[in-house]
Design a protein around this nucleic acid. Structure first.
Length: 286
DNA sequence: CGTGGGCCTGTCTA
DNA sequence: ATAGACAGGCCCA
């Protein structure tokens, strides 16, 4: 298909939002929902196999008006540079369940380790599929993980996260919680529900809200975004707060809320997009 | 309400 | 090689 909007597949899939896409022989392979598809980009030409255009447009956020979003969040030179460097980066619309479990697993782990955990989880508890002569695994269902033992989950390398995944899966299963339905709630209402799950704090909740529940105002603050804010937006905060935040690596809930609420006020309703650009820019600055 | 300490384990670096 | 630091935080006291 011929792209009529700015899009960069590599930026969008690399590092951070999604963990199960793999580049093999020039194609990106992904398991989304029940099936596998592959996609590659050459300039403004986007090719995909085993999936239709409607899904591709939705999944890769091609329906977001990125021009409007960019001009909306382009508040200063620093984010301006990030917007130019990663032009075409978009926010993916993931499955909320997979996204929730992914970010529960993501705490205190490097991206390589997160990919490893989710792969092992899918191999052990998901269904196998063949595509292009390669093996792929569906992400395990809610029901399957609700039945998993803590030790079985630990075998996938989850460590202390095993209990969180088990308890969260059981809660969603037994209480028949409809995660997709959270899209209909406001940002704050949906966040409140997510914070009720084991292993979900403000950071994990914001990732799920942004990457799977279409809450583009969510502004996840991880160590990289914290660094970006302290290095380039420190003058927006009281000096004593900046000093306090520099002393510790992680954030208290209070500090987290101060940063993310500043970001929503400053960047506006698309603060989540600003977060993605700042995150990638900060990570590549060293 | 704010704060400090502990936590599983895979990667990466020295 | 092998240890040690660090990793997209959360929970509990």
């Amino acid at each position: 298909m011929r792209l009529d909007v700015a899009f960069d597949l590599g930026f969008t899939l690399c590092c951070g939002q999604v963990f199960r896409w793999k580049k093999i022989g020039g194609w990106w392979y992904g398991v989304v929902g029940e099936s596998v598809f592959k996609v590659r980009q050459c300039g403004s030409e986007l090719e995909f196999v085993n999936v239709d255009e409607v899904f591709v447009r939705h999944y890769f956020g091609l329906n977001d008006d990125l021009e409007e979003i960019s001009s909306c969040i382009n508040k200063d030179d620093y984010i301006g540079k990030a917007l130019r460097k990663f032009a075409g980066l978009r926010i993916v619309r993931q499955n909320p369940w997979e996204c929730l479990i992914s970010f529960i697993c993501a705490t205190y782990k490097s991206i390589a380790a997160i990919e490893q955990m989710l792969q092992r989880l899918s191999v052990k508890f998901g269904e196998k599929m063949m595509f292009d002569g390669l093996d792929f695994y569906r992400f395990p269902s809610v029901e399957r993980l609700a039945l998993a033992s803590e030790s079985g989950l630990r075998e996938c390398g989850l460590g202390y996260r095993a209990k969180y995944v088990q308890v969260t899966a059981q809660k969603i299963c037994h209480e028949k919680i409809n995660l997709e339905g959270l899209k209909e709630l406001s940002y704050l209402e949906a966040r409140k529900v997510l914070l009720g799950f084991a292993g979900v704090g403000l950071k994990v909740a914001d990732c799920v809200l942004l990457f799977s529940l279409e809450k583009l105002e969510a502004f996840p603050v991880d160590v990289w975004v914290k660094r970006a804010i302290l290095n380039h937006y420190a003058e927006k905060f009281p000096a004593d707060l900046v000093k306090k935040m520099q002393r510790h690596d992680s954030l208290t809930n209070g500090e987290y809320l101060k940063i993310s609420e500043f970001a929503r006020a400053y960047f506006g309703k698309y603060a989540g997009y600003a977060q993605e650009y700042l995150y990638h820019y900060e990570r590549t600055q060293r």
